[in-house]
Nucleic acid binder design. Sequence first.
DNA 1: GTCTCTATCTACTGCATAGTAGCTAGATTT
DNA 2: AAATCTAGCTACTATGCAGTAGATAGAGAC
Lengths: 211, 211
Amino acid sequence: MPNTKRLPKSSQLKSEIAAYKRRRILEEATDLFFTKGYDSATLDAVAERLDVTKPFIYSYYKNKGDLLREICQTGIRLSLSALEGALAVEGTATEQLKVVVERVARIIIENQRYISVYLREEKNLNAVDARNIREMRHHFDELLGDLLAKGKKTGEFDITDPSRTAIWLSGLLSWIALWYHEGGHWSATEVVMDAINMVMKMVQPRSAASA
Amino acid sequence: MPNTKRLPKSSQLKSEIAAYKRRRILEEATDLFFTKGYDSATLDAVAERLDVTKPFIYSYYKNKGDLLREICQTGIRLSLSALEGALAVEGTATEQLKVVVERVARIIIENQRYISVYLREEKNLNAVDARNIREMRHHFDELLGDLLAKGKKTGEFDITDPSRTAIWLSGLLSWIALWYHEGGHWSATEVVMDAINMVMKMVQPRSAASA
DNA sequence: GTCTCTATCTACTGCATAGTAGCTAGATTT
DNA sequence: AAATCTAGCTACTATGCAGTAGATAGAGAC
């Protein structure tokens, strides 16, 4: 029965191709949502970029909102796994925080489109998706807060409330997605270095106290 | 000829009333754009909140985009005048920066709706308005950059590039509008104090150098 | 070479809402 | 009290686009 054996193989290939198509749709949609805004970007325009027609998109995504959900999820998921990966690196809180900022900042720059669409268009998500994504975001801030708490305990960090500080850091990182401009005045590396310096200054104690 | 004298008076009152109506429309529109997003918020809904009908709005604003422009302009104008007011206070760069952050942070919290609509919905402005508003924003960052440059010269601030640092500070302040929640975990005062501390740590030198 | 199945397209519907033309009621003038 | 003026309303048009029903063509089975 070679038939039953070939079937799974071919259907695997098919699903790989389908996944690829989904990814391409997502990429172009992200780019368009990023440049024109969610509402002004039409699915006809997304289709045109791929040289297909609107119903093509509808056979891979339920509707426009489903596409937005996936973009937002991708944005937050990428940041979250960069954070988790960085936290897996052994080291003092100080060392870990540097790795975290470096990696997350890089990921944000590389995936700016996903992340800034997520930050800007959150209001256009339906209630369920919005909740889900808010929870991922919250988890991000919590993990960051835990690291800060650890550093506070060891005396490496001079902060009062780790979870509040986490929100500031998280904001500083998010901000990159909103103003960084590829090929602009500053290089990605400069921005990443800056972010690391800023964050370390924000959390590390200084020998001399000031008014 | 008391007639000719009364005419300007009555027309002044009229224009005051017209200005009040414009303001009320703006307030409700801002609130609605803030909670539902620009595109999902309809002018019929804005009208309903004021117990009037849509054509009422059209006799005070040219169209929906005109309303958005005014919201965005209000947001950036408020921040800008808070900054300019703070810069007018005499003092060292350090003292001035503290005043700047305190006042601007307060204004941002008080006028959160205008500012977050501005940050979120910039993409929905027409080209001309967008340019105008980008210039005001740029001016804000420049003034902040000048203050940082002054502090760098006097040795009060330890930063490499004042204009780049200005963008980070500006981002830190903007971020407040995006996450602060009235009646949430933290009070406005806590957030303002935090902002001041964060900013000062970011720019002030520390006695001991670190890796 | 016919049959079937699947992926995509053509061509449409429906709806939400931005924006407007023209009416009305109430105040203002003479 | 007739004439005029104005602010706001009723009732409409127009359009852009999300979403879909049903046709079609091309690959693969037998």
